[in-house]
Every structure is written in structure tokens, then in C-alpha cells.
Design a protein around this nucleic acid. Sequence first.
DNA 1: CGAGCCGTTGAGTTCATTCAAACAGGGTGG
DNA 2: CCACCCTGTTTGAATGAACTCAACGGCTCG
Lengths: 259, 259
Amino acid sequence: MDWDSPAADATEPVWLHRRIAARRNPLELAEPLATRVRYSRGQAIYEEDSTVECWCRIVSGVARRFSLRVDGRRQIVDLLLPDDVFGFGTRGRHRFAVEAAVDGTVVARYPRARLETLAASDVRVAQQLQEASTQAMARLQTLILTLGRTTAEAKVGCFLLRMAERLSAGPPDALLLPISRDDIADYLALSVETVSRSLTQLKRHGLIQLLGTRQIRIVDPEAIEEADRFTANDHQGWPAGRLNETSEPERSCFAGHRG
Amino acid sequence: MDWDSPAADATEPVWLHRRIAARRNPLELAEPLATRVRYSRGQAIYEEDSTVECWCRIVSGVARRFSLRVDGRRQIVDLLLPDDVFGFGTRGRHRFAVEAAVDGTVVARYPRARLETLAASDVRVAQQLQEASTQAMARLQTLILTLGRTTAEAKVGCFLLRMAERLSAGPPDALLLPISRDDIADYLALSVETVSRSLTQLKRHGLIQLLGTRQIRIVDPEAIEEADRFTANDHQGWPAGRLNETSEPERSCFAGHRG
DNA sequence: CGAGCCGTTGAGTTCATTCAAACAGGGTGG
DNA sequence: CCACCCTGTTTGAATGAACTCAACGGCTCG
């Protein structure tokens, strides 16, 4: 099966593979150990508190690492895109559950024991593991900074920028969101309604354009990055030329996601 | 200098060393490489975007890893207590700055290059590095869960529980906060006033007792853990017997921190 | 004793949430 | 083909929560 090839399945949207061109497989040297598994949306990749048997890498699609609270709310701790590595737990146990966030998510699984023996014999493999772990830590820190922003508009804007950076090879001017508003809400610790409102606010302020419900064009990244200040001050401070609604027709320009 | 000994400096408060008994030095095998440095409150341990030269371990005291936003606000990404390891950056550079949060914080520094050669020759050292890295990741995930809670009272309560777990060897019933309200605020992305109000709220609800400004007794950990639900419902649901104010005299039972 | 820092409390405003309703698009079945 | 349902998304109104600005008390240090 040729799941690594970008054009493997023509029915899948492009963004699921776009990143493969941008970044190399971070576990390239361990690839002989890998077995691939395909998951449907919502399907568990592993459960909370399960034992660590494999390291995992997203080949295509998206997965969410999350925890369920006592009140039923869900906190997504990490959003896993193609070539993101996950599955190293704490003391042999997974602290969080992981499940596919879109249909047809493909995960490459590397048995932990064999991976470790390989790493012991090949330093470069050990370095790749280390690097993958560092990347995962960087994602967590980025999320903390996003959660730390003051207003919901700033959080959502920051989220868009980070997603654009991760999804695109070139300049982060446009992006196709791979996940639903629900997932964004649980990722940013906001309500779905607030996420939706923040997006329309960002659009009204001329910082983004909404081409489709999930297709977004980033107009003013710097202003988004500093959105805290602007929302704190009076709203006269917005650039006047951008205040008119960019009323693009809201036709869906793509297929392949079923929310 | 015998900084490892719990009674090295009688003027230092007990909690700075309490944890040494609870958890072993996670870089024990690398100790021959270590050099110790003492920092005063607010002093930089390393700067943002500096090159990674050493891994670090808190011997005694507290440090904060943080980033400054454009609006001047500060987000503390990690709070470092005795025997916490930090300083592994992303691609050779530190993404955040670290500075001492209390006077007399002692840090053991392990030169990166020598540490790596040692790890290459001794598998147990490599395992210790791996374990330390995993611990750091666990701290980040815990913070994300804390930041993800709905109300400020839930955030602060959750913070107290996690700090009690980290600071004490026994049951997490009491703790002596090692940091100021300001630091808590920047850690939880709240304002100082809200932190203060949340503490008095938790006290009023009978979930904690405030013995001193920094000495706290945890009365009902389970209720704190589920605080989201209670604050969401009506406030008649609180245990009636605990609603009377526990008006202990607010004398300071300890010295050694100057905010 | 005054200055300065830390912590708490109050008043008013802004912001996010809940509850509710409405809309759009995809898919299925009559 | 159209009606219908289901999911996901958007918007409105009202409530509740956190923030800012401000003032005050306690404590330490000079």
C-alpha cells in the first residue's frame, strides 16, 4: 500500500498531504519497523492509561490527543498533523487518549521495543527519537502560549497562525482547517459559539477572510499576533479600509471533510 | 559546598528541601559533571533564544520559565521546583527565558556536550535524560489541563493541588506556596486580583484554609478537582458545615521569602 | 516614621458563556 | 427529484464571570 504517496487517494483533500513536501519524515530511519493502520473519524488510536506499545506517526489525516473531565468536557492537549510523532507516554503508560479527528487518518506504528534496540545500535535513530520528542514538547509550549492569551479573539487568531505555519510549506497566508469548530473549541478551552464569533470578529476587523467554513485566508498576521492590545483598546483603532465586510460567496471550494 | 544537604542553610524555609527526600536526583549518574550556581530572585539563569550549553537541575529554590508578550504581559510556561530538570531547548536554542523566582535558588549545571558523550557511553545516563525530558513534558501537559479549566476558582484550586503533590512527600493536605501571587497569576493567565479572589472563594467554600498568605491547608481535594461543576450550579450545594469562616490568625509562620 | 512591596477588597465595565433559534450542506429514502 | 434528517455552523439575548482601576491594610526595610 502506497499511503505515503501524496496522490494515493484522489478523494482526499490536498491539505492532508501538503506538509509532506515541507517536512521530512522524522522517523525515516525507523521506517522498516513501521506498520500502517487506517482509522475513521472518532476511532480510538489508543486509550487513556493504556500501556505504551508503539510510537506513532501521522502519515495522513489528523488526530487529537485529549482527556475527558469529570464534567464531561473534553480538553484536547495536542493536535497531531501529518509527520507529527506521538505515543511516548509517562512511565510506560499513556496519560491521554488519542483518536482520529478525520476519516481515513493513517498512522504508522513503530513497536517500542524494537525501536529502542534500533536506537541503541544506531545513534542517528536515537537522535531522531529525541528530535521527535522535542517537537512534541514544542507543540505543548505553543498551546500554553495560545491558551495564555487574554481574549477569545486572540486565542483563535493565534491558533490560526500556528495552524497555517504547520500546514503550509510557503508563507502562512491561507489555510484549510482540518478540524471542526468543536475540536477548535476543545483545543482552546472555549465554547463552540465563542470560536465562531471570534472568527467572524477577526473577519470583520479585516484580519482574515472566510472563503469557506474551513477555508481561511490570513490577511494581517502581525495584527493577529498582537490582537491582545487592539481588543483591549477602543475599537476605533482598526484600519478603516478593512472594515467593510469581505462578502465572498460562501460556497464550499473543496470536499472530503464531513465535520 | 554542601548545597545538597537539606540543612545546609538554616535560614532557608523547609519546603525548599522537602522534596529531596521524596524524589531522588534524576541526574544522579551525571553528578560528576555538575557545577552549582546560586541566583537571587529575578536573576536570569539563561536568556530567551540563547544557545543551549547546559542542562540544568534545581537543587533548591524555585525558578520560572516564561516568555514576554508584546503587550508586556508575562506567561510562565513552567514552574521549576527542586529536582526538576530543564534547559533542553529546541534545535540548540532556548525558546524561553528562565530566572530564579526566590532568593538563593541553587542550580546544578551539566554541560551539554559532556553530558551527551556520557549518555552515549552509559545507557543508564541516557535513560535518565529521557526520563527527565518526559517529566518536563508531563508538567506542560498538567499546565494545559489547568489552563483549560473553566473558572478562575477551578484553575487556582487545581494549581494548589498540583503544587501540593509536587512539594510534599506525604498526603497533599498542606503546602507552603513558594511563589508570589504575581507568579501564580502569570502561570495561570489570570490577573493578580482574580487569583486573590479565587483563594478567598475557595476558603469561603470550605475547600481550603488560609493559615498565612502563603501557607495553605487543603481541606477537600476531591471537591477542588471537580470545582467546575459546583461553580456552574447554584451555590446552595456547598457543604453547610464548612461555610463558617476559618478565621485563623493571619500571622506569618515562616520567613525567608520576600514576595 | 515613611517608602515600597505584596496582598486583599470594592465598583464598574467588558467579555465569554449558556440557552435558544435559525441556517446551510450532505446524505438517504420515498 | 424533492422532502427530510442530521450534523455542523452561525447568530441573538441574557446571564455570569473576569478584568481594570482604585483604594486600603500589613509588613519590611531604610
